[in-house]
Design a protein around this nucleic acid. Structure first.
Length: 554
RNA sequence: GCCCCUGUAGCUCAGCAGGAUAGAGCAACGGAUUCCUAAUCCGUAGGUCACCCGUUCGAGUCGGGUCAGGGGCACCA
């Protein structure tokens, strides 16, 4: 909608230039915003103020000139005036909004789609937790944010693929295997010493028991070397399957699961390494191989092949990010837990070393989650296996509430997750507030239906009975949805959707309490039903972006 | 010591590229239900935007510094 206003202002500017009223040496950026006070108008622009310098004129004078030309701009503008230090305020006609509302119903679930993404190919990598244990709530936040981000970017016109990078090689997999092997022996009454750096969680015992159920004690006679590969593979699959199940339960699905192992198998890692060496970005020191990342703004060089010949996690990650680009992705987005922020400059350095613009890689850091029960903090130390898993959280508060809470705060903010609040089915809980609005609308439709009144189609409805201020406030808010999606996509900020929805829905609840929809006045009823239909579409689409259900009944 | 995030109402957080009188929810207080779902609504109260300096017509927003909280500085991933 703001794009339309932009065009209007732009053409007014053009006319002013043609008539010699303004110089306009350089076409300015048009910023359209909403005035704080709706009485001032529907839109405003600070254009005159930004033009003051280049035009060498008083902003107020420029504003008056632009106003003059805006007045002649079509039948859509009802009023235009200069205000304050040089703001230009526009008030649009009713028909301007109503005709756009009709389009909302026609767009249906496509309402909110835009083309800012220009079909740009973007790969979003998220979660990517090591398959050495179940996902905990921190991963849950990353999962919710990554998933919603993909939805939003897709809606904004990007060509999105999502991926989970599975670290299925390396020492931690060996430790996982050995942990399971030791628990296996322990359960079978063998004396074992369980090392501190092994995985302590109870799930390891579950895996061991499962192996005993299926294979009995047949591995007891075997040496560690013989038995460990089996335990490693078994445990890895068990854990990864669990992660997949938990994520699916959490309504998070990926376009791909990328195995780190395959990068070694098809020599991608060696090829990347060779390529970097050829370019002179790699050198040997102290028996290890180093990447000259400091040449690309990283604070120091990084080891990519250890003294013992093992390649580091970072090493295969180089190949992985190269692989992502080779697959035709124009932009890469990685979601990291905030504890990995030190890793970001490293990947950026890799981008440059590989010959790409460092800006095609964007890391999104998701800050920590702390759980609270009532006022009490729930302790969550990863060691000793004493953490709260995503599954436990979902079992306790449900998917909708969990996702909502994860998505309602800026990623930059540490998240205080109040379990008691999330569980409440009362108005204190904002998830229900939004969902309830949807259910309420559905119920109004039901009431109408029982009286033999159907929600009218856009092509046949007469919206002229809509005259209340609250109705137009609602309509304007509905029409702002595509811009919210757009901005959310451009800024990579997921939380804007939930705030928008909450605000949108508040307007509805207020309206609902003041005005009846289904009345004896047929034409008014139809017009209001249509308005609610558009509102319902907007709520549904917004909730869909967040992966939250839109119940028809509560 | 260096780096990243945060600091806005009692609590949890917004504040959209610097813009008009700083917002919402919860909690508190006072009201609303013969009426489409009260999981709702209406009203009241609540602020030195951590602090200092700077940039400019204008700073919660940008820059520098100080303080406080969280996280990170591996031949772990």
């Amino acid at each position: 909608m703001k794009h339309v206003i932009e065009q209007l202002v732009l053409s007014a500017l053009g006319k002013a230039k043609n008539n010699g009223d303004l110089e306009i040496v350089k076409e300015p950026e048009i910023v359209i915003e909403k005035p704080k006070d709706p009485k001032l108008g529907d839109f405003s622009t600070n254009l005159a103020m930004t033009l003051a310098k280049p035009e060498r004129k008083n902003p107020k004078v420029i504003a008056e000139v632009i106003c003059k030309y805006l007045k002649n701009g079509g039948g859509q503008v009802e009023r235009v005036e200069m205000a304050g230090p040089g703001f230009i305020n526009l008030k649009m006609t009713r028909s301007f909004f109503l005709s756009r509302l009709i389009q909302v119903a026609e767009s249906g679930e496509d309402f909110g789609n835009s083309m800012v993404g220009r079909r740009q190919k973007v790969l979003v990598e998220y979660v990517s937790a090591n398959p050495t244990g179940p996902l905990h709530v921190g991963h849950g936040r990353g999962a919710a944010v990554g998933n919603a981000l993909c939805n939003i970017l897709r809606k904004a016109g990007y060509d999105i693929k999502s991926e989970y990078y599975v670290n299925d090689v390396g020492n931690q997999m060996n430790i996982l295997g050995r942990s399971t092997w030791l628990r296996y022996r322990e359960i079978l009454q063998k004396a074992v010493e369980f090392p501190k750096d092994h995985y302590q969680g109870d799930y390891i015992k579950d895996i061991a028991r499962e192996i005993i159920d299926q294979h009995g004690d047949e591995f007891l006679g075997k040496s560690g070397d013989e038995a460990l590969p089996f335990f490693r593979e078994y445990a890895a699959k068990w854990v990864l399957d669990g992660i997949k199940t938990d994520l699916k339960e959490f309504r998070v699905e990926f376009d791909g699961w990328f195995s780190e192992k395959t990068l070694y198998e098809d020599d991608s890692v060696d090829n990347a390494l060779g390529w970097l060496r050829e370019k002179g970005f790699v050198y040997d020191k102290d028996g290890a191989v180093w990447l000259k990342s400091s040449a690309f703004q990283d604070e120091k060089d990084r080891v990519i092949v250890k003294q013992n010949g093992d390649r580091t996690y970072f090493c295969s990650d180089i190949a992985y990010h190269q692989n992502k680009i080779h697959r035709g992705n124009e932009k890469l987005i990685d979601l990291f837990g905030a504890d990995h922020h030190g890793y970001v400059p490293r990947i950026q350095a890799v981008m440059e070393a590989l010959g790409y613009n460092r800006d095609i890689f964007k890391a999104l850091l998701v800050q920590f989650v702390s759980l609270k029960r009532g006022g009490e903090k729930v302790s969550m130390s990863t060691r000793s296996g004493e953490f709260v898993t995503l599954k436990e959280l979902v079992d306790e508060v449900g998917v909708d509430a969990a996702r909502y809470f994860f998505l309602s705060r800026s990623c930059d903010s540490h998240l205080d997750f109040d379990l008691e609040l999330a569980k409440k089915e009362t108005p204190e809980n904002p998830v229900f507030y939004i969902q309830y609005a949807h259910a309420r609308i559905c119920n109004v439709f039901l009431t109408a239906q029982n009286k033999g009144i159907a929600v009218p189609a856009g092509s046949e409805v007469d919206l002229s009975p809509l005259v209340e201020d609250e109705e137009f406030a609602l309509i304007k808010n509905i029409l702002a949805f595509p811009e919210v999606v757009e901005k959310s996509a451009l800024a990579l900020e997921v939380h804007r959707i939930s705030h928008y929805l909450h605000d949108l829905v508040a307007g509805f609840h207020s309206y609902y309490n003041r005005h009846r929809v289904v009345t004896e006045n047929k034409s008014l009823t139809l017009a209001r039903l249509f308005l609610l239909q558009c509102l319902r579409i907007t709520i549904r689409n917004g909730l869909a972006l967040m992966g939250i259900s839109a119940p028809e009944k509560m």
